[in-house]
Amino acid sequence: MIEESVRRGEKPAQRPVVAGFVSADEPVGPRAARPPSGLFDAVERGLPFETTVHDELRSCRAEVEIESFDLWYGAKQALFGITMSIPNGAVTALIGPSGCGKSTLLRSVNRMNDLILSVRCGGEMRLSGDSIYSKDTDVIELRKRIGMVFQKPNPFPMSIFENVVYPLRVDGVRDRHTLDEVCEKSLRGAGLWEEVKDRLKESGLSLSGGQQQRLCIARAIAGDPEMLLLDEPCSALDPIATGRIEDLIGELKGRYTILIVTHNMQQASRTSDYTAFMYLGRLVEFGPTGNIFLNPRLRETEDYVTGRFG
């Protein structure tokens, strides 16, 4: 209570003057627990607005291109006209307050949202130029091109080895040599090889939480994907395990295009090259991580990254 009143008192003084969207009507006085922002207010009212995209992104080669992507859960719209290009070979972080559609957007890339029957979507999304939402797209093939790591470590209840080679198993690969090779390569890639090389036959569930998450990363890269989707990969881990995963993301950068959703500002700033800030289903600002955190174009972005709300 006290903190909130202090914050409320400070806000008008720190209001930055940033070029961008200017709301038609400025809010009359601050409202409790709401960022006093014209932009957010407009978003809430459903007014049209334009995403602020930093110039640095225009020169990048895009791995995934998203154009005016809309998504509904039944009657409720969750994503509003998202247009962004996810740069190839770099780490792009999606940040934003809870319920802003970060995870929905991430899961739209490999069509995991298809599993929810009430989901409808519109607009276009392309992976290396191949349409993701076209009628001819084979979802299974698509998912094989994209590795995914989830919020909670979710190894299968089988051996470490089988966990890692699962993407190959479903492809019908039986050759022991190939499997061994891929297993080692993937585990090394996920920085887990040294820890588990002597107990590949043990259950994946016998590992610690951080190890399990790295096992999941090994599984994600075993299928030799073009891209990795990380959905808050560290939210269930302790700081040390988080650190290791973050280091790992740094190592994987370049080899894979990585899209990561995170709630943790520091993590976004430490691991990512680009950051996209989302709010209530809209992409608000998208630019190089340094710019977003140190020199955002929008006051709302700055409010969020500095922890004034969210």
Partner: peptide, 26 residues
């Protein structure tokens, strides 16, 4: 758990493969 299903589908398995390889053994 739903997350096992998601993990398997996310790894590029079909629904049938998921059912037989992951769901049924679990």
């Amino acid at each position: 758990p739903e997350h096992l299903r998601a993990a398997s589908l996310g790894a590029g398995a079909t629904q049938w493969q998921t059912a037989i390889r992951i769901i049924l053994p679990t």
